[in-house]
Structure formats: structure tokens, C-alpha cells
Amino acid sequence: KELVLVLYDYQEKSPRELTVKKGDILTLLNSTNKDWWKIEVNGRQGFVPAAYLKKL
């Protein structure tokens, strides 16, 4: 499993997105899109802007 660090808080703006908090370490599911990465948070899957995340 690949992990990502959340660099900035992000509030979901659609049902396909997820809310994340700065400092969270989460599972990366897909990073093929350069702008939006798919991650998992508490069993939910969704997208967060790639600029808000850093691969560990």
C-alpha cells in the first residue's frame, strides 16, 4: 500500500471527494490523474486534489 501525507485541509465539494485534515496519513488508491488522487479515509473512497497530498 502506498501512503500519502495531507499537506493542507481540504473540504469536500462533491460526493466524489473526501474531506481531509493537514497531517493525516492516508492510503493512496490511484494517482494516475495528475490533478486528482483517489484515497481512502475511514473506509470511504474518494478524490482529493493532488496538490494537497505528498507521497510517503
Rank of each mutant, 00 (worst) to 15 (best):
K1R: 11
K1F: 15
K1M: 14
K1E: 13
K1Q: 15
E2G: 11
E2P: 13
E2H: 13
E2T: 15
E2A: 12
L3T: 09
V4F: 03
V4I: 06
V4M: 02
V4H: 01
L5D: 01
L5N: 02
V6T: 03
V6Y: 00
V6S: 02
L7Y: 02
Y8G: 07
Y8T: 09
Y8R: 13
D9W: 03
D9R: 03
D9M: 03
D9Y: 04
Y10M: 01
Y10H: 03
Y10W: 09
Q11M: 13
Q11E: 13
Q11V: 13
Q11I: 10
Q11Y: 14
E12V: 12
E12D: 07
E12G: 15
E12S: 15
K13H: 10
K13L: 11
S14E: 09
S14I: 05
S14H: 13
P15T: 10
P15K: 08
R16N: 14
R16C: 13
R16A: 11
E17A: 08
E17G: 12
L18H: 04
L18A: 10
L18M: 14
L18V: 13
T19S: 14
T19I: 04
T19P: 03
T19D: 04
V20Y: 04
V20K: 00
V20I: 09
D24E: 12
D24R: 04
I25M: 06
I25E: 03
I25W: 03
L26I: 13
T27M: 13
L28Y: 02
L28T: 01
L28W: 02
L28C: 07
L29I: 15
L29W: 06
L29T: 06
N30G: 07
N30M: 09
N30I: 08
S31L: 04
S31W: 10
T32Y: 11
T32R: 12
T32D: 15
N33A: 08
K34D: 12
K34N: 15
K34W: 08
K34Y: 09
D35E: 14
D35A: 13
D35G: 10
D35C: 10
W36F: 10
W36P: 01
W36T: 03
W36G: 03
W36N: 03
W37L: 02
W37Y: 06
K38E: 15
K38A: 10
K38D: 04
K38C: 10
I39D: 00
I39L: 15
I39C: 12
E40T: 07
V41P: 00
N42I: 07
G43D: 09
G43H: 12
G43V: 03
G43T: 05
R44E: 11
R44Q: 11
G46K: 02
G46P: 01
F47D: 04
F47Q: 04
F47N: 04
F47R: 03
F47L: 09
V48N: 00
V48F: 02
V48I: 08
V48W: 01
V48P: 00
P49Q: 03
P49F: 02
A50K: 07
A50N: 03
A50C: 06
A51T: 11
A51R: 15
A51E: 10
Y52K: 05
Y52C: 07
L53Q: 00
L53A: 01
L53I: 04
K54T: 12
K54M: 15
K54I: 13
K54F: 13
K54Q: 11
K54A: 10
K55V: 11
K55D: 03
L56M: 12
